[in-house]
């Protein structure tokens, strides 16, 4: 495979986590853990030996049960987590929608958050100024422009987040089931925008519990179980195998 065609290149990545468990019941146990160095750090492997090559313009869906490592994989792609072993390379600009309200400050108003969030994505203030109207209109939040985000409903926050992240066409769009909270009409709007981006050459990485969504949006799929890859390939095949295993 030619390197320049890849958007994401992950080779045998392992991610180590800190469980930070606080189940210490006695002073003796405290000292035993202190000596072993487990007091503040208890390791846990969220991903083990995962490899993934995503070509530019491709769309991948990640399926698996809760705690399978889907979101961890997305965080690895974003550069938030560094691999403990193995390598992870990303080529191109990323628009991450990892979680509801990522990159928002709850105390600040919607307008201020648009600028803060835009700056996190690497846009200039002038650029955001020009696109403010477009963002607010897409999110349908014009009346709430000067209300602090902490008073927003989760659906409103998600709408604003999606609208900012997809304002410009990123090279890689990362979506982690935030669409589940929007109402039906907004979900349709998001779908249309994502499909438009896909046809425009954006690479999509998508996590959802709705296998149907993965099937319609993604060409390929990766099935994770307890941090390991069970199956990867065409989305229809992987999704069917995943559904079959759960029944």
């Amino acid at each position: 495979m030619i390197k320049s065609n890849l958007a994401v290149d992950i080779n045998h990545a392992t991610i180590r986590f800190n469980m930070a468990s606080e189940s210490i019941f006695s002073i003796k146990e405290y000292f035993v853990k202190l000596v072993k160095g487990q007091l503040m750090f208890q390791e846990f492997f969220a991903l083990q030996d995962v490899s993934l090559q995503v070509e530019k313009g491709d769309s991948w869906g990640f399926v698996g049960t809760n705690g399978a490592g889907k979101s961890t994989l997305l965080k690895l792609v974003c550069g938030i987590l560094k691999p403990f072993e193995g390598t992870a390379q990303v080529y191109g600009s990323i628009a991450p929608l990892i979680e509801l309200g990522a990159g928002f400050d709850p105390e600040m108003t919607a307008r201020e958050n648009v600028f803060l969030n835009g700056a996190i994505l690497g846009h200039t203030k002038k650029f955001m100024q020009e696109h403010l109207d477009e963002i607010i209109d897409f999110a349908e939040l014009r009346e709430f422009l000067d209300v602090p985000i902490k008073n927003f409903s989760s659906g409103m926050t998600a709408r604003l987040g999606f609208s900012i992240a997809t304002m410009v066409q990123p090279e890689i769009l990362i979506v982690d089931e935030i669409l589940a909270v929007g109402d039906y009409a907004f979900q349709q709007k998001c779908h249309m925008r994502m499909e438009k981006m896909l046809s425009g050459g954006t690479t999509l990485l998508f996590v959802s519990h709705s296998v149907d969504q993965v099937k319609t949006l993604c060409k390929h799929a990766l099935w994770l179980e307890k941090g390991r890859v069970v199956m990867s390939g065409k989305s229809a095949e992987v999704c069917d195998a995943y559904i079959a295993s759960k029944q």
């Binding site: 201020e112 700056a119 690497g122 200039t124 203030k125």
Partner: peptide
């Protein structure tokens, strides 16, 4: 330089929120 706008935004945020 890529993140200088973010830097400015964070400084403004701190000052604004302090006396809001």
């Amino acid at each position: 330089l890529k993140y200088k706008d973010l830097f400015a935004q964070l400084v403004i945020r701190d000052i604004k929120l302090k006396y809001r």
